[in-house]
Amino acid sequence: MDLIVEGLSRAIVLLFTGDAELWRVIWLSLLVSGTATLLSLLLGIPAGTFLALTDFPGRRIIVSLVNTGMGLPPIVVGLFVTILLWRSGPLGFLRLLYTPAAMVIAQCVIATPIVTGLTLAAMQALNPRLRLQILALGATRFQMLWLLMREARLPLLAAVMAGFGGAISEVGASIMVGGNIQGQTRVLTTATVMETSRGNFAMAIALSLVLLVLMLCVNAFLTSIQQRKRPL
C-alpha cells in the first residue's frame, strides 16, 4: 500500500516540478502516436469506405483480413517492422531502425486495420439506399462520399479514438523498433516497462498516470465533438 501512496505522491511531484526528461517522453509519445494515428486515418478511412461501398471478387477475404488485423499482436508487428528496417533488410537502406519514424510505422501498422475495420462497419451501417438518394440529388462522387462520412461521423470518431488508443497504448512494437533510447525513442509505455523492471515504481506510476490522463484528454476532446448537439 505504501508503495502506491509513495508512488502517487512522487508522480505528482515529478509532474509539477517540470522534470525535463518526463516532459520529453510525453511530447514524443504524443508526436509518435499522433502521427501514426493521422497516417492510419489517411489510409484506413478511404480503405474502409471503399470496402463498404464496393463489391469485387475477393472483397470478403480482404474484409476478414482487416478484421483479423484489428487484433494484430504488437509483438508480431514489431518483429516484422524490425526485419524490414534491419540494416540488411529490404528497407535497411533507409536507416530508420531505432528512430521515432520506425515507431510511427509500427504504430501505424497496428492502428490502420482498427481504423479500416471500424470505418467499414460505420459506413455499412448506413442505409444502402441513402447512397442512391444522394446520387439522385445530383451529388458528384466526392460530394456523395463527403455526405456519407458526415452521416457516419459518430462511429467514425469512435474509429479515430480506437486508432489513437491502439497506437499510444502499444508497447511491444515500440520497444523492438525504437529501442527505448533515452532522449530519442523513449515514450510513455516503453519508459514504464523499463522503470517497472528496475523496481522504480514511483516513476512507473507517474508515467502510467500521465498516459491515462493523456488518453482521457484526447478522448474527451473527440467525444465532445462526437456528442455535440448540432446548433440549429
Partner: peptide
C-alpha cells in the same frame, strides 16, 4: 427521385 423511405440526412 423520391423513394419510399424519406432518406433524409
Amino acid at each position: 427521385v423520391v423513394f419510399q423511405e424519406p432518406l433524409l440526412l
